[in-house]
């Protein structure tokens, strides 16, 4: 690259007079950066032209300065406003979107919580009911077991005499009652399985017959007892036979023979 030739080509003058294409302009700027001689020559030309221009210097009025700086101030103000508006807009966006998301999230959370709470409560209720039911069933079973065990104990106890009281009337011919009596400890139990329930005004009354004399052994309501339990009656020191009559609630002193349901001899 012959720098002298490049300088003398006139390209720098063209550049100074703005008579170059964009490509030529870039070329001159590039060359001036690479070669200090070209840069110096270019600066000399530019400074000469500027000095030439400066010869025509004319002081402008103060109004121009005021106008320029007013516009600059306004431009700054607009930029600041735009910046603030931009930030404001961002904030608005943030403020406008944030609550939406928050409300949506809140609602979702509320629904979820409510759903979970409802489900949990529902499940808890179900479980509690199940537990209560199981407890109840367990209690019932334990009670039943206890009663069964008691019944089984008495039935399997050889000290107890098992006496079958048979039905007396045609109507009650199918009825029978099993009576269990332990002569040693005098205790008496009735298995009421085959006895029908009575009106509220009536009760069954058990009698122990000793030498033809009936002795009151107590009244009972079969409905009050389950099938797996025995009804405890008064103790009997001695008996030849046992009989059950239907009497008014509370019982009577002497049995109504016409209302005798079952009887069994020992």
């Amino acid at each position: 690259m012959n720098i002298k030739e490049y300088i003398e080509s006139g390209i720098l003058e063209d550049y100074v007079f703005h008579n170059v294409s964009d490509q030529q302009r870039r070329e001159v700027e590039c060359m001036s950066k690479i070669y200090p001689e070209i840069r110096m020559e270019l600066e000399r030309m530019q400074s000469s032209l500027i000095k030439f221009i400066e010869l025509e210097s004319t002081s402008p009025s103060q109004e121009i300065k005021a106008r320029i700086f007013s516009s600059i101030q306004e431009d700054d103000y607009n930029k600041e406003s735009a910046r603030l508006n931009g930030e404001g807009a961002k904030n608005v966006i943030k403020l406008s979107n944030w609550p939406k998301y928050a409300v949506a999230a809140g609602l979702a959370l509320t629904f979820l919580t409510a759903f979970l709470y409802y489900s949990t409560v529902k499940q808890n209720n179900v479980l509690e009911n199940q537990i209560a039911q199981l407890n109840s069933e367990q209690k019932l079973l334990l009670d039943r077991d206890k009663k069964y065990s008691h019944k089984l104990g008495i039935l399997s106890d050889p000290d107890y005499k098992k006496i079958k009281l048979n039905g007396l009337s045609d109507k009650d011919s199918l009825a029978y009652v099993t009576l269990l009596w332990n002569p040693n400890n005098k205790s008496v139990f009735i298995d009421h399985t085959n006895l029908k329930n009575l009106p509220n005004t009536k009760q069954y009354q058990l009698w122990a017959l000793v030498s033809g004399t009936p002795y009151d052994m107590g009244v009972f309501d079969p409905i009050s007892y389950s099938s797996f339990e025995l009804i405890p009656m008064k103790n009997a020191d001695a008996a030849d036979a046992f009989a059950i009559t239907i009497e008014s609630r509370g019982g009577v002193e002497s049995p109504t023979l016409s209302e005798m349901v079952v009887m069994g001899k020992i």
């Binding site: 500027i50 221009i53 400066e54 010869l55 025509e56 210097s57 004319t58 002081s59 402008p60 300065k65």
Partner: peptide
Amino acid sequence: FERLYDSTCSMMYGLALK
């Protein structure tokens, strides 16, 4: 910028006027 304006305005105004 005001210093720049004060030192160059006459030249630039002369150029603009020219």
